[in-house]
């Protein structure tokens, strides 16, 4: 068995039982909600990792798509009485179209310039959420978002929502892994290595970058949809610049170009603030310190860093 294949099975072997058992064992709605948030953040991080880690295109405004997803479903369900499941395809279509229109001119940029461009886009969307008050509710946000339900199953129950989110995460992980291993996935990875060489081989890099930009926006929209129907209240503060930066941090901390890294990065950055409440005023200092230490000692991210440590210990035993 190839080492990569072994690693992948190992990760599935850890991931699936942990999720299945957590849902059964944990009774506290608070802990279940924290785990559900990890799932939502994982969706965001996987999408961004496809764009940043695999295609090598930075986005510092991804919270905008997260917000567009959340606000679209909210507006449709609250103002227009759509059922949430009917609002979902509309949410994905609207976000996809925005990503297409923004990505078309934006992806001509590269490196820092693309970072600046996406940052600007994120800011504009944030201001729009805050100032377009008769549609978005302005700074005070929007309330009364209906909870999800499917026939007799109500997702207002924390445990049900936990399983729903993680089922979606699982589907996304499998989808992304298959995509990465495919012909298109190879082309995607080649863009981050050398865009010119990829072009010379016949890869339509412009088209492919746009498609992956839209895909990552759709992941963010899905996360936004799940977030809105989980908390049933949204406000612009949940989709500001800092959220975009937190997403990028999750990708980097977990490990660029690694689907499992996205999961780990999202888990660490969601759990860390919850665990650091004890430090009270020094919470952010300790948080920053931990991130610094991870980057100093594991510059390739947690997944690869931990794997390196494991491989070193195995080779020492041999």
């Amino acid at each position: 068995m190839k080492p990569e294949c072994f690693k992948n099975r190992l990760y599935y072997g850890i991931f699936l039982p942990v999720i299945a058992v957590s849902g059964f064992v944990i009774d506290s709605p608070y802990y279940l909600q924290v785990l559900t948030f990890i799932g939502i953040n994982t969706l965001l991080t996987i999408g961004l990792n496809m764009l940043m880690g695999y295609a090598g295109q930075i986005s510092l405004g991804h919270a905008a798509f997260y917000g567009i997803g959340a606000y679209t479903t909210t507006i449709l369900t609250v103002h227009f009485d759509f059922s949430p499941w009917a609002a979902l395809p509309c949410t994905l279509v609207v976000t996809g179209m925005v990503a297409f229109l923004v990505g078309l001119p934006m992806l001509k940029l590269t490196g820092y310039y693309l970072g600046m461009g996406t940052l600007g886009f994120g800011m504009i969307v944030y201001v729009l959420f805050r100032e377009w008050s008769h549609v978005t509710g302005g700074s005070s946000g929007m309330v009364g978002i209906p909870s999800l339900s499917l026939g007799p199953v109500s997702f207002s129950d924390s445990r049900n929502y936990f399983y729903l989110v993680w089922m979606i995460v699982l589907v996304c992980i499998v989808f992304c892994q298959r995509l990465i291993q495919s012909r298109v996935g190879r082309a995607l990875r080649s863009i981050s290595d050398s865009e010119n060489a990829a072009k010379a081989l016949g890869v339509d890099t412009k088209d492919l970058k746009l498609k992956i930009f839209i895909l990552s926006a759709l992941f963010a929209a899905m996360a936004g949809f799940l977030y809105a129907h989980l908390v049933t209240f949204i406000s612009p503060g949940s989709f500001d610049f800092m959220v975009s930066i937190r997403m990028v941090t999750m990708v980097v901390i977990g490990g660029m170009a690694s689907i499992w890294g996205a999961l780990l990065g999202a888990s660490v950055l969601t759990l860390l603030p919850e665990c650091l409440h004890a430090f009270a005023d020094f919470e952010m200092v300790v948080y920053g310190l931990i991130l610094m230490l991870i980057m100093i000692f594991m510059p390739r991210g947690l997944t690869r860093g931990l794997m390196d440590i494991y491989e070193r210990s195995v080779s020492k035993q041999i």
């Binding site: 012909r183 990875r189 080649s190 010119n196 081989l201 016949g202 890869v203």
Partner: peptide, 17 residues
């Protein structure tokens, strides 16, 4: 301009993209 992070086989397969 080979793709340094991709395997040799993946590089070759990309040639037939």
């Amino acid at each position: 301009m080979i793709f340094s992070t991709l395997s040799v086989l993946d590089n070759l397969k990309l040639g037939a993209y």
